[in-house]
């Protein structure tokens, strides 16, 4: 990995106040909701933590949106303002540039999402690990961050409107279609995350059950990460910077 590209990308992202605010919101929202939940009577805490907090809020909303913002800004903002020229006019294998950009984006997304993924359920479960629920979702989130971020890095190299396509993907494909058609669950990062979490956690099926089994999910998510990396590298190798005239 090229550490110069990595450091430059981190510096670029850290100075984007909008991104940091969104990241802060992403990490505070689940924790805040867990605190509100605790304030009431929490008889069904395992059920609430699994389906509402971890599946409904973290895996379905917070994680993809945080990755969308970070993943598209890692490469997209440079392409937009033209500074990508400085990076691309170097004798670097395009794969190295994608690796470094993706590594920086994954690091930032993880910093936004993972602390809350661990802290919020520990709060709502009052410190218990919920029969492996917390550990399962933590690992699933980490892999989910890698997959989503790579997909959004790919979108920002291959399309001119990564944010629009990304939003469409998260809400229409993962959200609406996933609920309407059972077939799309085999092509859904969200479902892979749930499958991995379910595979690790020992929690009863009555409380939480994923549509896919853990092993299939793991294979699929690794395949998505690999495919997105290869496609992004290819797209960057054929990348055209449109002239002004």
């Amino acid at each position: 990995m090229n550490t110069t590209v990595f450091a430059l990308t981190l510096k670029e992202m850290v100075r984007q106040r909008r991104l940091l605010l969104a990241g802060l919101a992403a990490s505070l929202a689940p924790v805040g909701l867990a605190l509100i939940y605790r304030a009431g009577d929490f008889n069904d805490s395992l059920d609430w933590t699994a389906t509402t907090l971890l599946e409904g809020i973290i895996i379905t909303v917070v994680l993809p949106l945080a990755c969308l913002l970070v993943g598209t800004s890692a490469m997209g903002s440079e392409i937009e303002d033209g500074t990508a020229v400085y990076l691309l006019s170097k004798p670097l294998p395009r794969r190295d540039i994608i690796f470094a950009k993706a590594a920086a984006a994954i690091l930032v997304s993880a910093a936004f999402v993972l602390p809350a993924t661990a802290l919020a359920p520990l709060l709502s479960l009052d410190g218990a690990d919920g029969e492996g629920l917390v550990a399962g979702f933590f690992v699933a989130s980490a892999l989910g961050i890698c997959a989503y971020t790579m997909v959004f890095v790919l979108l920002s190299v291959a399309t001119s409107r990564p944010l629009i396509f990304g939003l469409g993907y998260v809400f229409i494909w993962e959200g609406v279609l996933g609920d309407l058609f059972t077939g799309t669950r085999y092509l859904s990062i969200r479902q892979y995350c749930l499958g991995i979490a379910d595979g690790i956690a020992g929690v009863s099926d009555r409380i939480f059950q994923a549509e896919l089994n853990g092993a299939v999910s793991l294979v699929m998510i690794v395949a998505v990460i690999a495919a997105a990396t290869i496609l992004a590298t290819r797209a960057l190798a054929r990348f055209e910077l449109r002239a002004e005239d």
Partner: peptide, 23 residues
């Protein structure tokens, strides 16, 4: 095109003013 190796011997000064403002 599609040959990053040439940049070892080729330099480019783009027209656009955008630079990394934080450096």
């Amino acid at each position: 095109f599609g040959n990053p190796d040439i940049y070892a011997k080729v330099g480019l000064v783009p027209e656009r003013e955008a630079v990394y403002p934080f450096l």
